[in-house]
Design a binder for these strands. Structure first.
Lengths: 346, 346
DNA sequence: GCTCCCGGTGATATCGATAACACTACCGAA
DNA sequence: TTCGGTAGTGTTATCGATATCACCGGGAGC
């Protein structure tokens, strides 16, 4: 019999499992089992319990549950920004993959800084997540230490870090941008310019820029046409301003590659506003294959990245490790695809 | 003295407060106080404790903390979609407002359905959030019951529900769309068309449509030019397809109003692709003032909504209630602003 | 007929923190 | 001197669930 440590009739605090157990005439342990997936409880008992649960409007308290089971059911994920549709897709991929597993996402955004990321990691770790998903491979030393101590699987995404913490799901931004350059060079473009943000906060942006520079050098094309404008993530408006600056300094530029589709779109609109023909007068390409790139006029050539897939695969890998119970799991590096999408802007 | 219920040397599970207390030579209670904001602990003791915390790499376990303090520090928020920059802004507003308070956001997306919202609410309630933020006023009966039982403050946002659950932070979508119609009518447009999604899943979309219809009727303008296309949220591509359908059925339409800027952008691009001049041949307006509307060419006339402010104010109101400890708080309805932004597309 | 095993259930001991209260110095005011 | 007040600390009792082990009855296998 369950102990009668229940609510006094007058007071109405939220019902607990004890209340349910009393009402159904069973022990709390049986209630606990009935509310779980694989709980071995007879059909009759389960029904009694469900009736009691509905009558009382009982909702399981997972805070208490996680304490005793030592499983919180949380997965923490950090993205640079919630407003970037690429990362929003990744977040959606994570959520969708987690949905069937009963794991819940703790989502935070770092605003593209490792300092905020560090604080966020610390806050998240207080919730004892069973796995952690990060964007990129740049972290503070302290963040690395915290993650190591936490002893939970970590997935870095969207890049191929030189010194991975644990798991990786991503692609080489450098190679992807290099592929874009080569694709356009093959079409006959010769004088390439690059538009990106000013600082190195956005490591993916820096890698794309490096990929651009290296590809240009390898192909023996004119170098040096690099415009840095605005703190990442560089906006549509800043893309427009940057292309103006590009044309002032190097008016004969034939093709402008941008760190993202948003800046490319801004550049495109600014060129059209100035009466330039795209791609006849100037070709423009972006990165990320945002929806706007496909449906603006002319459509923007870009690099499509499997954002949603990155999220799903990162989550899937975490689930494997968490549910697999591998004590010492293998490091795994999962490459995700990308491809150049050629449209009318080049 | 603290009891010595600590880890055996060989095994290395994560350190607990007991480990810290032992190492610092104090009780766990003192450690707990030292790690809290307003904890009254002597400077010397706090320093000893901090040394121990760093040595051990200790991180507070909030799961355990919330159980005993009966405060989880969670706020749950549900938005229709993570990929919509308007809602992303709201989510950012919530996060930013919560940041300084130590409250943490549990974010979920409903995919524009009340059924998924209901499941999400149930899942969130298991985490015992101290407050809940919803988008819109349409919920299942069961969801309403769950929320009532939970006994925590609830904020509905982005609309003015006819039957509010508790707090409200939003505006009238109907009036906002009506204002847009009247503004354009004043410029001389006469034959108005409307483009929106097919179902009523998107209640804000339905309200905007109603606002459109009512304004047209009040002004005595030609009615009936309504195109429904695609399941909300209607995409850029669908906006383009919808405007084609509009022009086929009512070729003399002078101004097309769209449920959102994305569909307006799609419509705009499709018109340009077909060689139409905007606004001379056809005027186009959207809703939401997305970044793309401001920087595409021509810029799209739209209704600016304070998305970020909705998030901040919703969170602020929750914090007031939570921290204020008002047992029976007042219902409050906070109106957020909107304004028509006229650009070249009309 | 006797084990053995297994489905179904209950009792007990935690999980890791904090609330609440108790206690000790030590201060200044009456 | 005595008393109240306060800063700093410790002790104890939970918070609400679940892991674990124990127990019981009945069918299968010999």
């Amino acid at each position: 019999m369950a102990k009668a440590t229940s609510s006094r009739p007058g007071e109405s605090h939220a019902p607990t499992m004890v209340d349910v157990a009393l009402r159904a005439g069973v022990s709390t342990m049986t209630v606990s089992r009935a509310l779980k997936e694989g709980g071995r409880v007879s059909k009759a008992t389960r029904e009694k319990i469900m009736v009691a649960v509905n009558d009382l409007g009982y909702v399981l308290d997972q805070s208490a549950g996680s304490l005793s089971s030592r499983k919180t059911g949380f997965v923490a994920a950090m993205v640079p920004s919630l407003n970037n549709s690429n990362f929003a897709d990744t977040a959606r991929g994570i959520t969708d993959e987690l949905e069937s597993t009963g794991l819940q996402l703790l989502l935070g955004y770092t605003d593209y800084t490792v300092e905020k990321e560090e604080r966020l990691i610390e806050a998240m770790l207080r919730r004892r997540p069973e796995g952690i998903i990060l964007t990129g491979g740049a972290h503070t030393e302290r963040a690395r230490r915290l993650l190591k101590n936490a002893g939970v699987p970590v997935v870095e995404t969207w890049e191929l870090p030189a010194k991975p913490i644990d798991q990786v799901v991503g692609f080489s931004n450098e190679e992807a941008m290099g592929l874009l350059v080569k694709t356009l060079a093959r079409k006959g473009y010769h004088k390439f310019g690059y538009i990106g943000g000013t600082t190195s906060r956005d490591t993916r942006g820096s890698q794309r820029r490096e990929g651009f520079v290296r590809a240009i050098e390898e192909l023996g094309l004119p170098t040096g046409r690099l415009v840095s404008f605005g703190v990442p993530p560089i906006s549509i408006e800043q893309g427009g301003q940057a292309v103006v600056s590009m044309l002032e300094r190097w008016p004969d530029t034939e093709a402008v590659l941008c760190v993202s589709d948003l800046s490319a779109f801004g550049a495109l609109m600014e060129c059209k506003r100035r009466g330039m023909r795209v791609p006849q007068d100037i070709a423009i390409a972006g990165f990320g294959d945002y929806e706007v790139a496909a449906f603006c006029h002319p459509g923007i050539t870009t690099v499509n990245v499997d954002c949603y897939g990155i999220g799903r695969q990162a989550a899937r890998r975490l689930i494997q490790i968490i549910r697999g119970g591998e004590k010492k799991h293998q490091q795994e590096i999962i490459l995700t695809g990308y491809r150049v999408v050629e449209r009318e802007s080049t």
